[in-house]
Design a protein around this nucleic acid. Structure first.
Length: 620
RNA sequence: GCUGGCGUAGCUCAAUCGGUAGAGCAGCUGACUUGUAAUCAGCCGGUUGGGGGUUCAAGUCCCUUCGCCAGCUCCA
């Protein structure tokens, strides 16, 4: 709507009883609600429940928290304090570490500030003058942030006794912040640079309604419940041992079965899509890693070993092995593309602080493939991989987003090669009408990539598949094929994974399904439970028949009450619980109980087999 | 790697001011012979992550080292 010159938006909103309005857009630009129009302007009010409204609310919450910190500690220095998804944080230096106790105090003080309903007042000052203010305050971080700003004039916001550098806009007054909670505190480098001092980062959540805040806090609980490290232990899938070493996974029978099922699924899918199985060695001469550029650009992440006075590198990637397969003989244009697939075990020296269950480990298996093709085949090959990703994600019922990562600082190859590769990826996405974002400077050192971020059952995003286009390694290794015209040409290499790391993907599966794996990948599909020892022989017979039919079955032979045995099976998240007692022995049936759903009634073995097979085939 | 927190039985967790390491579950043995999420009893289980120190006395305090957790940086 167009509002006349001289209108104060806050007053206008109040007068017209506009509810839940916390800011406005004038000519499309976000401004404080407490703005008086200098001309007739197109105005759009920003609702507190909108994405922009929430961001403003959360950003203001960060300011209020900063004020509270200053009240509690007397003096504090500040880094940055932005809004983030679901909340906000502020980087703070109070001369000591902030404890959980402090958080309570700060939260209490925030409530006081909210109660006082201070106005957020915007001021514009010359940069130099502002620098002086923060120098006097002794806040060298803000001074440095100011020095980085190019503008002559900067804006400041004051609420009560607290003044902060800020672009704005903000909520009109502190009272608008009603539903928030401080969550945790941890160290964070100033400007994200590990060489700079570490500040204390306090995280908080803020929402427009109590319901939304409660829902989010519940979500955090839900995340904890689904934690794959916890479920991995409970379901006896894997362990990580202090004795063995950090970041190294020990797969127990059920976890190893899960791996096997996923790997077998992958092998079958790759065969269908025209890939060939290959396998390279675990260690290759260091000389080879020097030639590929890994030694110069990836050495920090590699392990080396010496044999008979010669240096070898343990592979952190599978490409060199696959290149050797390609190079093993002269190639014709007719045999391209070559698609080499390997469930390749790689080792990467990850920094100790980043290890995390199965999600970040030092040894993992990639569903890795390298496609060697002619330049004219590149587009189709990339599209083929994108379709592959689509098929697999569809089977697992995951939604996903695509991102292109461009040339990083630490990289090899010429600008021309990088442009060619990047354009090839963009073209493939454009040609198939896929949506994507661009992530500048985040590519691999040898080429740009398309990253696939899958979304799990509770809305979290995970990076799994990646497709990388590479003109550099073919050049470094002198890869060639004989073209139609009899001349040697250089093939293009596409590095790609679909699930990424089997370990990471299994972590995601565990959390996505909360351990309730669908029948086709459940390590144990059914457990036969005799009502009492009288029925053990019949239970064994049922168990044997299902086993013969290829099902993953267990026999419960512990001498416990039926209730307890059912409980064990439910706790173990076994999809089908088959109970046999007098009734079943008599009628040659089983009583079928489905995990989390309960009794489905009696069935003969044949119809049960049919039912299970159908469910396995559906992959749901 | 960095900042902070935390390491107690297979698992989940107790142990006041520095004063005899304890419970539930799991496991084992026995009794019971079970009809859709925990039957009862007994037993076993620990150099309190490792090493060093302070003290009459250390799970508890100090140092060191390893690991885990949260976040930062980095990443499949």
């Amino acid at each position: 709507m167009v509002l006349p010159k001289g209108t104060n938006l806050l007053e206008y909103a109040k007068k017209n009883k506009l509810k839940d309005i916390i800011a406005a857009k004038v000519d499309g630009k976000l401004v404080d609600l407490n703005t008086t129009l200098e001309d007739d302007k197109e105005v759009e009010f920003v609702d507190i429940n909108s994405e922009e409204g929430l961001e403003i609310l959360r950003h203001s919450a960060a300011h209020i928290m900063a004020q509270a910190v200053e009240h509690v500690f007397g003096k504090a220095k500040f880094g940055v304090g932005p809004a983030i998804e679901n909340g906000f944080y502020y980087d703070i230096d109070v001369g000591r570490t902030i404890t959980e106790e402090d958080l309570k105090k700060i939260e209490k003080e925030m409530k006081k500030i909210v109660g006082a309903n201070y106005k957020f007042e915007r001021r514009e000052l010359p940069k130099e003058e502002t620098i002086k203010i923060f120098k006097e305050k002794g806040d060298e971080y803000k001074v440095e942030i100011l020095n980085d700003i190019d503008e002559e004039t900067v804006s400041l916001y004051q609420q009560g006794d607290f003044l902060d550098l800020c672009r704005g806009p903000h909520i009109p007054s502190t009272g608008y912040l009603k539903h928030f909670k401080l969550l945790n505190v941890a160290g964070a480098y100033f400007k994200g640079d590990e060489k700079r001092p570490m500040l204390q980062r306090i995280y908080g959540a803020a929402f427009s309604t109590k319901e939304a805040l409660d829902k989010y806090l519940k979500f955090l609980e839900e995340v904890k419940k689904r934690d794959h490290r916890k479920l991995g232990k409970q379901l006896d899938l894997f362990s990580i041992s202090d004795e063995v070493g950090p970041g190294l996974i020990i797969w127990h029978p059920k976890g190893a079965m899960l791996r096997y099922l996923i790997e077998e699924f992958e092998r079958q899918e790759h065969l269908k899509k025209g890939y060939e199985f290959v396998k390279g060695p675990e260690i290759l001469r260091t000389e080879l890693w020097k030639r590929s550029g890994h030694y110069d650009h990836y050495r920090e992440n590699m392990y080396f070993t010496e044999i008979d006075g010669q240096s070898f590198g343990i592979k952190p990637m599978n490409c060199l092995g696959h290149i050797q397969v390609y190079k093993s003989k002269k190639r014709s244009y007719k045999e391209l593309p070559k698609r080499y697939f390997e469930l390749g075990v790689v080792h990467r020296h990850e920094k100790s602080g980043v290890l995390h269950g199965l999600l970040r480990v030092r040894e993992f298996t990639q569903d890795d493939a390298h496609i060697f093709c002619r330049p004219d085949q590149l587009n189709d090959e990339i599209i083929g991989v994108l379709d592959f990703v689509q098929d697999v994600m569809g089977i697992f019922n995951f939604d996903y987003e695509l991102e292109i990562s461009t040339r990083p600082e630490n990289s090899i190859g010429s600008d021309e090669q990088w442009d060619l590769a990047t354009n090839a990826l963009i073209n493939a996405l454009e040609n198939t009408g896929r949506k994507y974002d661009i992530n500048e400077g985040d590519g691999a050192f040898y080429g740009p990539k398309i990253d696939v971020k899958l979304k799990d059952a509770i809305g979290r995003k995970w990076q799994c598949a990646t497709i990388q286009c590479d003109f550099t390694l073919p050049e470094r290794f002198n890869l060639t094929y004989i073209d139609e015209d009899g001349k040697e040409k250089q093939p293009v290499m596409v590095h790609r994974v679909i699930l990424g790391s089997i370990e990471r993907f299994i972590a995601i599966l565990i959390e996505n399904y909360e351990g309730n794996f669908p029948l086709w990948i459940a390590p144990v599909q059914a457990r036969v439970i005799p009502v009492s020892i009288k029925h053990e022989d019949y239970a064994k017979k049922v168990y044997g028949e299902l086993k013969d039919k290829g099902f993953r079955v267990e026999l419960e032979d512990r001498n416990e009450t039926l209730g307890k045995k059912i409980r064990f099976a439910e706790v173990d998240k076994v999809p089908y619980i088959l109970i046999v007692g007098d009734k079943e022995v008599e009628s040659n049936t089983v009583s079928v109980r489905k995990r989390k759903e309960g009794d489905l009634g009696c069935m003969n073995i044949d119809s049960l087999v049919e039912k299970l097979n159908q469910e396995v085939r559906s992959r749901r």
